[in-house]
């Protein structure tokens, strides 16, 4: 029996060009769908696989607006068993405050049901990319943590985690209970089954409302960076373009 908790964040699926709100302080999400970021999708899949092998419970937690329940249900549709929602007013939370709120919720749960053997995070959130919520949670709980993990083997007392480093793999052995930040590529997440979706729809979500808060970094404005390239020069259409393309390759020294 293992108890695994996975933290996921609801993020917008931005397309080819990001559109901002008129006051340039937020991404205009009115036309956008939402998702769990890819690293975290893999973390959920990894947790489900571990529990399929060893027996146990997968709990998924999110801190976010009321709509983030959709992302919890997405996780449930591929096999998560318990859903925890720390409900905000939708304003952005900084990583330190996010970690504090997650730690509070974790302590509450662990007091009631015992410790989670493993707590999984994504390597970094897709939108803000702060690279720290998992480490902060681990430190507060006094548990070991390693980020960027693309291979994980859970034993009885320890986990062995690998991450890429300079053309090879670094290997870490962490004592359980521990915290791991997962990278996409650790597995290929399954698609939800129809019964999975139906089950997820009916599942209870534990909701805890949170007060709003202000972080130490005061955002002044967002902007879309100017790109190094603009419109491409069209070399040609179809196979007619091939000779001209090889000419360019020769000119650039690509074809030796």
């Amino acid at each position: 029996m293992v108890r695994v908790l996975v933290c996921v964040k609801r993020v917008a699926m931005v397309g080819a060009r990001i559109v901002l709100t008129a006051d340039e302080t937020e991404v205009d999400v009115r036309q956008l769908g939402f998702t769990i970021s890819p690293h975290e999708e893999c973390a959920v899949e990894e947790a489900v696989r571990i529990v399929e092998q060893r027996g146990g419970v997968v709990t998924v937690l999110t801190l976010g607006p009321i709509e983030a329940a959709d992302q919890l249900r997405d996780a449930a549709s591929i096999g998560a068993n318990e859903l925890v929602h720390l409900v905000t007013d939708g304003k952005e939370w900084d990583p330190s405050a996010t970690a504090d709120a997650i730690v509070d919720a974790l302590r509450r749960h662990e007091d009631l049901n015992g410790p989670y053997d493993l707590i999984l995070f994504g390597n970094e959130a897709a939108d803000t990319g702060d690279y720290q919520v998992g480490v902060r949670v681990a430190f507060a709980l006094g548990r070991p943590c390693v980020n960027g993990v693309k291979n994980l083997v859970v034993g009885e007392e320890t986990v062995v985690a690998k991450r890429e480093f300079r053309g090879g793999d670094e290997l870490y052995e962490l004592a359980l209970p521990s915290v791991v930040g997962v990278k996409e590529g650790i597995n290929l997440p399954r698609y939800p089954s129809l019964p999975g979706r139906v089950r997820a729809k009916k599942m209870a979500i534990e909701e805890t409302p949170l007060e709003g808060h202000r972080g130490p970094v005061k955002l002044e404005r967002l902007r879309v960076p100017s790109e190094p390239r603009e419109r491409a020069e069209i070399i040609g259409h179809g196979v007619d373009a091939v000779e001209a393309l090889v000419d360019l390759f020769e000119q650039w020294g690509v074809v030796a």
Partner: peptide, 15 residues
């Protein structure tokens, strides 16, 4: 095509 230097319009499987 708005983020490249050069483009060929056509089917990869042929080109």
């Amino acid at each position: 095509l708005s983020r490249a230097d050069y483009a060929v319009v056509g089917d990869v499987a042929v080109i």
